[in-house]
Design a protein around this nucleic acid. Structure first.
Lengths: 210, 210
DNA sequence: GGTGTGATTATACACTTGAATAATTTTAGG
DNA sequence: CCTAAAATTATTCAAGTGTATAATCACACC
């Protein structure tokens, strides 16, 4: 009876592997299927090791949720930053990024819904969500301000907040449906609808964007 | 050792009780906590009885999800039907109903997210969701058509669909945030934002409603 | 007011769960 | 090369899981 061979890994790599395995398991088998044993197997490791890196399963899930929220925010955020100087173009790219992979993805929805569903059980997840939501909304609000300023309009503080809330809500809702039932919509249809709606809400025209 | 006393109940009542207990457990303890034993205890019944009414836990969950979707749809739908004859008023009431209890409710979000999170595990849940989503959206689309017709505009079929998708998305997204982090918003703020946005998207004025 | 039917309980089973602990292997530093 | 520390595995534990089956109680009907 020989013991399974193994390698020492740096803490960073191991933690990252374990979190990735956690997300894989949740996406594939639901939270019931994301057991310590399943996760360990997926990570190519024995169950005991998990306890060596995370004081509890609960903490590991929190870390995993933070990573998901970060991915979603950063993807859209990076897209807009890389775009260039005109505000209207940045907003356009920011909105559209939410309707393309990796953000639009049944797997993403699965993960997101799982963590949301656990908010009642683990309140820390609510706090993580709020952080991510506000980061996203603040970024959006800034983009809106820039667009309105660029258009020569004087952006009212409160109006911007309300518009950001509404647009953020619409993006979330359309994203949900796109992940869940992409086949109900034509290619790029949700992105187009989102863009057109944002244009109407702001009273702008995205065709002017570069 | 005396046996626990019990009452015979009609099938309808018992099934309803069991579904209610299922939803309670899911909302309070998450899907992991919604065990056959927990649910039975909550319903004041022994675990074995559950198998007498549902061939499996999976089937019971499907039935429970159908009920949730129905409650949400019917609540908003009934509100608009009871309102009266002017289309713009019916739309207003329909939209606002989504931002008041029982639809806005952390418990509702918990349940909804739980079932969504299980879509990957049990595809039947996806079908149930789609049914509920389309029912809601169709109702909304009809209301939009009525409003535009009432306003003397010729409602284009495709435009109505796209507006319904966008508005439905926005309602969903704002509903989500309202359930999750109601404290981030002032009383009625989300309903007001939703209403104002719908007005802008349709180019109408809700102040004209009765 | 018995009595038969089936709703309900009780018990058992085979398995899985998260966690704790002890035993070992790897790896870095002298 | 040795050695010590730390990463990783192996084993164990008590509790909980969904489901199956048999015993029994409640109630409708004659």
């Amino acid at each position: 009876m020989t013991r399974r061979p193994f390698r020492h890994e740096s803490e960073d790599v191991r933690r990252q592997d374990l979190i990735a395995a956690t997300l894989d398991c949740i996406a594939d088998y639901g939270i019931q299927g994301a057991t310590v044993r399943q996760i360990a197997e997926r990570a190519g490791v024995t169950p005991g090791l998990i306890r060596h890196y995370f004081v509890s399963k609960e903490r590991m899930f929190q870390t995993a949720y933070r990573e998901i929220m970060n991915t979603m925010f950063e993807t859209a955020s990076k897209a807009s930053e890389e775009h260039g100087s005109d505000a209207i173009g940045r907003l356009k790219v920011f909105v559209l990024a939410n309707f393309r992979p990796p953000i639009i993805d049944p797997r993403m929805l699965s993960l997101w819904a799982t963590f949301i569903s656990q908010i009642g059980v683990d309140p820390e997840l609510a706090s993580i969500h709020r952080e991510g939501y506000l980061a996203f909304r603040d970024r959006l609000e800034t983009l809106l301000q820039d667009v309105l300023t660029e258009a020569g309009r004087k952006p009212n503080q409160d109006d911007c907040r309300r518009m950001a809330i509404a647009i953020n809500g619409m993006i979330d809702g359309l994203w949900l449906e796109g992940c869940m039932a992409g086949s109900l919509f034509r290619e790029q249809e949700l992105g187009d609808i989102a863009l057109a709606s944002v244009a109407t809400l702001l009273g702008i025209d995205f065709d002017k964007a570069s």
